[in-house]
Amino acid sequence: MNGSEIFGAWVAVFLTLGIFSYLYKDNPFYKIAEHVFVGVSAGYWMSMFFWTQIQPNLFGRLWPTPDGAIAGFFMKIWYGIYNLFGFILPSVFPDGGIDKGHGNHPHFLYIIPFVLGIMMLLSVSSKFSWMARLGIAYTVGMAAGLRAYAFLNSNVLGQIKGTAVSFVDMPFFSLTGVSVFNNLIILVGTITGLLYFYFSKEHKGNFGKVTRVGIYFLMISFGASFGFAVMGRISLLIGRFTDLITYGSSTYNYASLWVLLLMIGLLAVWTFKGNKEVAS
């Protein structure tokens, strides 16, 4: 176990216990952990996006390593711009172009996303913020178009097919497999659940009774969701505790124990001081 791993474990323990300390009440340890989390996440995401997408896939396509010497007036200007960028940021724009497997000729079509991206960044300027709308409009339009077909195919047609159940050639009741009883539940649940969201007719009389059955199905579904949510949160707690137990071993110089004791001590002092100030 090297020093950096042990240090990492101590930091992980501090941040975990710092977040847990909020269960007692809002305190400086929680604030530190919260701010570190937000800051590191933002920095990490930005760095990750830049080095996995913008540098290799955008700049790599705009300025790929040319095949031999650069010929032609326009290409010389184009790679002249690249060299200028390279002078400022040599790690992003290395000498001779970016070789990420996108061929040897620039893909000029990628100037469009480049420009749209810059436009979106202009939202920080009050004078040019209107330009950001173009980039956002493109993104929204593209996403809507991309999703329309997929939703129709998988969520509408696929799910309708899924509820078109059979009632023949199967046992009447089975807990573990397909059965008439299970299919009946699917059929009744789907129809009554959908009818509950039909608001053009008042939910009274027989129609009201049917929609009430729909509510019960929805309630069962919400109950299942709640149960799964609890299960998920307990799993995460188990994960953190497992790590804290690991980091509490002698290999990590009893990090969990020391940090816990230190935190409890400092929180006690902080609370005591706070109470005294309130009293005075």
């Binding site: 799910q159 899924g162 579904s221 799964f228 998920g232 799993s235």
Partner: peptide, 17 residues
């Protein structure tokens, strides 16, 4: 999936997708 997603994904399992 995470536990919380199971309810959302289960209809795709039931339909055979």
């Amino acid at each position: 999936t995470t536990s919380i997603q199971v309810n959302e994904v289960m209809p795709y399992v039931q339909s055979g997708q």
